[in-house]
């Protein structure tokens, strides 16, 4: 086939949580530049299965860049070399024939490796469970125009809500800090009247859980935002700081 690529892959293999793990080197041939990165991995896994080896475990779901399941730290960058793109939307045309590609799992204390490239991101779930929700009355659907929201606020809340919780911010941060994620989730609800009743409690609890989960703290390097597939802005981290201190100094919670 003309125009196809032959690549060398150095992939992190780790049997389970307790295994030490190591890199394994694989060759893949005749890769179409129009394949996605995950499809290239599918090809590699087919090869491994036909040879009787264990395929490489990796997370993926929608393969449309919206679910936040895929991870992979590719050549030193979460989700690979492109800006504003998840691994599933990264195509092999971003690489060259003969390239060596290093693929690692997200590395963080709070994201332990389960197997190969799959990490346990349930620490994010616990952060959300501690405050990333609104308590709504059940019953009939309310008229959407009942609560008026300024366009600018709605836009800002939406830009925060674009976060798919993939964890690339943690993976990119030299401190493995989750502040971009947490700030997006706090911001999204802080901008909207629906989020107002639980606003203070939310900021306090989510930051507390984030600390308990063992994420690092932010040093404002901006690596998170640069690597975020949804290009969440650092403004949200500043807003989280305001929300947190505003809550801490004015809430009724004395603990």
């Amino acid at each position: 086939m003309s125009g196809t690529m032959n690549l060398t892959l150095k992939v992190w293999r780790q049997k389970n949580k307790n295994d030490k793990g190591a890199f394994a080197t694989y060759q893949v041939k005749d890769i179409s530049p129009d394949m996605s990165f995950l499809e290239m991995f599918d090809v590699l896994n087919e090869q491994l299965i036909s040879k009787g080896e264990t395929p490489i475990a990796f997370d993926h779901d929608c393969r449309e860049g919206i679910c936040g399941m895929c991870s992979m730290y590719i050549n030193g960058r979460p989700h690979g070399p492109l800006k504003g793109v998840t691994t599933c939307q990264l195509h092999m045309r971003s690489f060259h024939d003969g390239d060596t590609i290093v693929v690692e799992p997200w590395r963080a204390q709070a994201f332990p490796v389960i197997k190969d490239l799959v990490v346990d991101r349930s620490s994010f779930d616990r952060i959300i469970a501690s405050g990333g929700f609104v308590s709504v009355n059940t019953g009939n659907t309310k008229d959407a125009n009942n609560i008026l929201i300024g366009k600018e606020d709605a836009d800002e809340a939406f830009s925060a809500a674009a976060c798919i919780g993939c964890g690339a911010c943690v993976a990119a941060c030299k401190n493995a800090s989750a502040m971009l994620f947490v700030s997006a989730k706090i911001s999204q609800l802080a901008m909207l009247p629906q989020g107002d009743p639980e606003r203070k409690r939310r900021a306090e609890n989510m930051v507390e859980t984030m600390d308990e989960e063992g994420f690092g703290s932010c040093t404002n390097t901006g690596a998170c935002s640069a690597e975020c597939p949804k290009e969440i802005s650092l403004e949200h981290i500043a807003r989280m700081n305001r929300e947190y201190f505003g809550a801490k100094f004015t809430s009724q919670n004395v603990k």
Binding site: G76, V102, A110, K174, S177, G214, T221, A223
Partner: peptide, 14 residues
């Protein structure tokens, strides 16, 4: 301590 195992290759964007 928040990243006990470091990356083999890092391409910093900061």
């Amino acid at each position: 301590k928040a990243r006990p195992v470091s990356y083999a290759s890092v391409n910093n964007q900061s």
